[in-house]
């Protein structure tokens, strides 16, 4: 009984991540004043939503054996371009959102096409794309921050229908769609196969190149969504706003038990992975330390968490 539980958890590393989050929340809730309040937990979830959404695309890409290092830059691009692209005479604000997401998706398509058809390794392709976008933003926006007045984005960042932040509801929708795509569609099954053995997949008649264009466009799209949500919560977009989310998205994926080598994993682990990251950051902030030390603690913490839950099984 006990043993079968252990083996079952070992077979599904994401369960371990979930248990870890629950433990941290329970312990912190009893020891830190204010941590367990609904308002604080809701705030943590809201922050997790941004990481969770950008990590959804990252999960798909990593499972298929790639990596997207441009998500941070795409988030920044979205946050800065959205105010510029929102026409003043649109009372809903949806036109600006549509235009921004189209650009984010387009960036993803370029990433995917470069990786698939020009055979640029994804790590190089997406890193070059990120650098390119950062340069472009400096030219377009200069160094100044832009404020958002788009009503839809402001609603997204502040409304609480049904008592839950709109961003968290959006995350739930994204999670449902991602889990469905990964575990219930032929597309998801092919991603896993491609990640585990691209040569066999190609010779089995899977359209590997087309799948990778779709993948990176999904990742671009989701990074755009995360960028817009971040803008709504922040009310301001500025160069570098998305930068911290690159490492966070990859860390959430790996914490969730998805193999960084591809071929194995689930978004069901990335969700608690994202929450675990945000919670740890919050706990570090409670400790009175200088920003330098906080960064060092955060980096060490990610490594420690990976040792516990996300370590590659020896093959």
């Amino acid at each position: 009984m006990n043993r079968s539980l252990v083996t079952r958890v070992a077979a599904h590393p994401w369960v371990l991540t979930l248990v870890l989050v629950a433990l941290v929340w329970i312990v912190a809730g009893f020891t830190l004043r204010g941590f367990g309040s609904w308002g604080h937990l809701r705030y943590l979830l809201e922050l997790s939503a941004v990481i969770g959404i950008v990590a959804a695309g990252q999960t798909l890409v990593v499972i298929a054996g790639g990596i997207d290092l441009s998500v941070g830059a795409v988030m920044t691009v979205s946050a800065i371009l959205l105010p510029l692209l929102s026409p003043a005479d649109d009372p809903t604000g949806l036109a600006g959102i549509g235009a921004t997401l189209a650009i984010a998706t387009g960036i993803g398509i370029l990433n995917g096409a470069g990786a698939a058809y020009l055979r640029v390794p994804p790590i190089i392709m997406t890193l070059a794309m990120a650098t390119f976008l950062q340069g472009l933003l400096i030219i377009v926006a200069g160094g100044s921050a832009v404020s958002v007045s788009n009503p839809a984005v402001i609603w997204l960042g502040s409304a609480r229908p049904l008592g839950l932040p709109a961003g968290v509801i959006l995350w739930i929708l994204v999670s449902a769609a991602t889990l469905y795509a990964l575990h219930r569609t032929p597309f998801g099954a092919r991603l896993m196969a491609i990640g585990a053995n691209p040569i066999a997949s190609r010779l089995s008649g899977l359209a590997v190149d087309r799948a990778s264009v779709r993948l990176y466009s999904a990742s671009g799209f989701l990074a755009g969504v995360a960028g817009i949500l971040l803008l709504g919560m922040n009310r301001q977009g500025y160069a570098g706003i998305g930068d911290p989310y690159l490492l966070s998205s990859i860390a959430a994926v790996v914490l969730g038990g998805t193999s960084i080598l591809g071929g194995r994993g689930t978004y069901a682990g990335t969700v608690p992975g994202a929450i675990l990251l945000v919670t740890s950051t919050a706990l570090i902030t409670v400790v009175n330390a200088s920003p330098g030390w906080r960064s060092i603690m955060f980096g060490s913490l990610i490594l420690a968490l990976l040792l516990v839950s996300g370590r590659e099984a020896r093959r």
């Binding site: 896993m192 053995n197 066999a200």
Partner: peptide, 20 residues
Amino acid sequence: RESLVLTHSIAINLALPSIG
């Protein structure tokens, strides 16, 4: 190297070309 996705199940390997 070229035929099978070794780490995946027998079932998914058998079904892979037919899933779509």
